[in-house]
Design a protein around this nucleic acid. Structure first.
Length: 200
DNA sequence: TAATAGATCATCT
DNA sequence: GATGATCTATTAG
């Protein structure tokens, strides 16, 4: 299993986001269990050029990682409760990132259930940005992790190329720049969160 | 099945 | 002091 190279991520987030679909996000948990999810839904955030991005108003202690090199993890607390994970991409100094919104569980599924006690079926396990962080055991402590490092608890692997159409539409849950179709998902995948229909 | 309210806190004004 | 890149339980139909 080869890790995805930094050069793959150091591009325009609008190109990286759809290319991330089908890839595997791999997490070695504290017990050494390998938890793997196939990326089925993402959103691109363009940094200082994007009013919906946390980096819109320039670097702060929280958003510092996004201004650094591609391949690192930006994790933030959502609504005081959940964690959400982004992969930093773009060039150095450009605070671009891709929010991982949903995964299709591939391995370590039993371990995922223990961290997602309310999930009743596999499609509840990681079908949302907060859910997938819980399922993989990702917290604020993982913020700043380099996914492209030779060793590490979290990484990206090639996975399987999409076997179905990729659709795009407006991003979910934001209140600024709502019209940009910067959310990408696998058209028929049942693990996608939110609307799955093709926007007109 | 659909709609709604409550949880809960780091971050920035 | 206000505000979320959300999730879940509860309520109503």
């Amino acid at each position: 299993m080869s890790r995805i190279a930094r050069a793959f991520l150091a591009r325009d987030p609008l190109d990286v986001a759809p290319d991330l679909l089908g890839r595997h996000l791999v997490r070695i948990d504290a017990a050494g269990v390998r938890r793997v999810g196939r990326i089925v839904e993402v959103e691109a955030y363009l940094g200082e050029a994007d009013p919906a991005s946390h980096a819109y108003r320039g670097p702060t202690p929280r958003t510092r990682v996004m201004f650094g090199p591609a391949g690192h993890l930006y994790v933030y607390r959502s609504y005081g409760i959940h964690w959400c994970a982004n992969i930093v991409c773009g060039l150095d100094g450009v605070a671009a990132a891709v929010l991982i919104r949903a995964l299709e569980p591939v391995a370590g599924i039993d371990a995922m259930y223990t961290d997602r006690p309310t999930a009743r079926r596999v499609t509840d396990l990681a079908s949302g940005p907060g859910k997938l962080c819980a399922a993989l055991g990702i917290t604020g402590d993982d913020g700043g992790t380099d996914l492209c490092a030779r060793v590490g608890a979290i990484c990206l692997e090639a996975g399987e190329p999409p076997d179905e159409p990729v659709w795009r539409g407006p991003r979910v849950g934001i209140s600024a720049a709502v019209d940009h179709p910067w959310r990408f998902w696998l058209a028929r995948n049942p693990h996608v969160s939110g609307p799955r229909s093709r926007p007109e």
